[in-house]
Design a protein around this nucleic acid. Sequence first.
DNA 1: ACCTGAACACCGTTCAAGT
DNA 2: ACCTGAACACCGTTCAAGT
Lengths: 211, 211
Amino acid sequence: MARKSTAKVSNYHHGDLRNALVTAGRTVLERDGVAKLSLREVARVIGVSHGAPLHHFPSKEALLIAIAADGFRQLCGVMRDATQVHLEDPLDQFRASAIAYVRFMHDHPHLMRLMLGGLIPSSFADPELKQASRDAFNVLVETVKAAQAANHVIHGDPMRLAFAAWANVHGTSVLVLEGHYVAEPRANLDIEAVARRAVEFFYDGVRRRYE
Amino acid sequence: MARKSTAKVSNYHHGDLRNALVTAGRTVLERDGVAKLSLREVARVIGVSHGAPLHHFPSKEALLIAIAADGFRQLCGVMRDATQVHLEDPLDQFRASAIAYVRFMHDHPHLMRLMLGGLIPSSFADPELKQASRDAFNVLVETVKAAQAANHVIHGDPMRLAFAAWANVHGTSVLVLEGHYVAEPRANLDIEAVARRAVEFFYDGVRRRYE
DNA sequence: ACCTGAACACCGTTCAAGT
DNA sequence: ACCTGAACACCGTTCAAGT
């Protein structure tokens, strides 16, 4: 939630309308999707006038950026937590963080679309969002480095390896969420099994090695 | 462009307002992004009244679906073309179609977001869109099968292998387009080199095999 | 069969005015 | 310093009316 250093609480309205907007925005987003996420609706949910949000965010896009950055911070935490339960084996850390990624996206489809769906034109420029996504990415980079140090993974540029791993888990997440996973019916889809399979494909490759 | 069987041309307005809407919609989309793509703007571009589009599409979403389906058909053609120039080696076919995928998404970022960004709530239900994406996916499935038959690729379920390949190239496309490729500066980014590397990672895996 | 234009309920953003 | 409410220019959709 990234509270500011000078924590002044409950001096006006809800104590902190800015945070209330991010939280309510996230709620509306996850319930109705980004198309239904309007500043006026968020203001309505909180119970302030439709103009109030613009005193804390210069535009709707700024609120979307704050929600997306929050999402990346949460993702970062989830992935870090996943690595912590496998302190023995760096390869298990790698697997666990990848699976945690897919699970997170599966649990928060609308948030994923906001975070990586190109809905925020200024996302390239915004430093807060950039930092938050970098922090999440760095969890992957660290696990890759550890796995390399343990001689489990090839010794290429860890950034490029981590990028490839990210592409793998994100592509898997997107295609599943947008309804393109075909191997089994949607009803009994085991997202963790799909994620695990994606990681194994990525780790072992698809090359046939000895006939 | 999937012209209807009874090809009646230029009887009213532009000859065929329905196709004109899809074409103009695609133009607006690629120029300004989906946020700026409104039925009223498309109508304005063509020069009809703002209500006219609704006589050919029951809603804005229906036009978006038509544009997305068109995109999948074009993608399918591009990938098929890529396989045709490598008739000798099925593995080269696999590589070529994957690289063509990434290149296509790189050339049409806004279209990609419409096709696979979850912007169309009813995309799960629409049969035309479903068929178009299936056809594109099947190009991958066929190349996987051919590569398996030539003993270049492991003998798992071709659907699952093709899905993994799709996830790999799509994830790569998304992350590059959304500005998360970190290994080199954005200015001199060689998208084909990135795509080729993604394919090789996917093919060989990242496992360290002998020290 | 196809198109127009007024109408309605929404939206983002601005801004003068209030406390 | 923060919030309200009227105003403006947009939007999707409906619908009676025109050809």
